[in-house]
Design a binder for these strands. Structure first.
Lengths: 182, 182
DNA sequence: CTTGAAGACTTCAACCCTAAACTTCGAAGC
DNA sequence: GCTTCGAAGTTTAGGGTTGAAGTCTTCAAG
């Protein structure tokens, strides 16, 4: 026996080594940063998914609640605006709002002054679920950064902000479509 | 006029300010790191999507090619192993392989010694597309990190690796399902 | 007016993923 | 050998998203 390599996801170090092996001329420093970013996000996404599942909602639904609350009083936005903030198509927004209205998380009404427009607002239950989700996320995030000193956290945040600024300049548009994240 | 707030995605700073406004007791340092991570990943995902689209394949298909190549010679893996590495369900892997076989990117054959097993291999075209995609990704990634000195890149990579280690210890399993990323 | 054009949202068809049931082959146990 | 259990893939049903086409309202001309 001891012949089958036992299937498993390669570690970050193994992956970087594999890159060096299969393609010369790749900067390992760059590759480490990029691969770590991707893996981190995947893990974060999974963690958030488990938490929102506890609330009986999906990750994407929580994102809608977040966008509405962070928009500030009176906590109302149109589907189109929401779609832009979440990086979704208007069609997806329509369906998602359908579900959330049915679940009692948000309300949908037509604008009185402009009947083409629709206004989405948060219900009490929606706001409560957002808050509970935020609390759970905070616990996870604090734990994630636990090993870093306050100074290191500052440095990390500053560097990531610089990276973000650079991509945002290169991609001036809203950033294209994508499920949830953020 | 000058009454409608003109829909737009809030900037990172605006979002952090909104968090402080709507929920006291949140650490802005933590929030900055986490939000920047999510936004960065979304932008990266969009960028990769555009690049793979140029190759006439999807992001997910490129991930399969990458996994096969990084597995090392003889560049063959079973669907189950692939699914684990990509964080997909076996069912999704079956369909994705179907498409990729039809497009001539990979081959699917039954294992001679064990006819339950299936072996997926890369074709010449598949390997070429992986390489071309890698070249494009490298350009993007170098540009992304351009503003950081080599020392800063090292620090960033080291800190991200520490974060990743922490989540991976907390989530020992393969990390759950999720589209592509990584 | 009323006609044309643009904007906001919805509807429809197609695609890809997940979860669960199903099929098939291989390895043990008796 | 025959039976049973387990592992590997595939199939099916259902959710959620995209892209394109369609509907309805508003606004500005003519």
């Amino acid at each position: 026996m001891a012949d089958t390599p036992e299937p498993a996801e390669p570690s970050l170090d193994e992956q970087i080594a594999a890159y060096q092996r299969e393609f010369q001329g790749l900067d390992p420093q760059v590759e480490r940063v990029v691969s770590a970013l991707s893996r981190l996000n995947r893990r974060m996404h999974v963690a958030y998914g488990r938490q929102t599942a506890e609330l009986g909602i999906s990750n994407g639904e929580w994102e809608v609640l977040k966008a509405l609350v962070l928009a500030g009083a009176p906590y109302r936005l149109g589907p189109g605006d929401l779609a832009k903030r979440l990086g979704l198509t208007p069609a997806a927004m329509t369906h998602r709002i359908d579900r959330m209205v049915a679940e009692g998380l948000v309300t949908r009404e037509r604008d009185e002054n402009n009947r083409v427009r629709v206004i989405v607002g948060v219900t009490e239950e929606g706001r409560a679920k957002w808050l509970e989700g935020l609390r759970m996320a905070t616990v996870f995030e604090e734990d994630l950064l636990q090993d870093l000193s306050s100074e290191e956290r500052g440095q990390l945040g500053a560097m990531l902000t610089r990276l973000l600024r650079r991509v945002e300049e290169a991609q001036p548009d809203a950033g294209g479509r994508l499920n949830d994240l953020d």
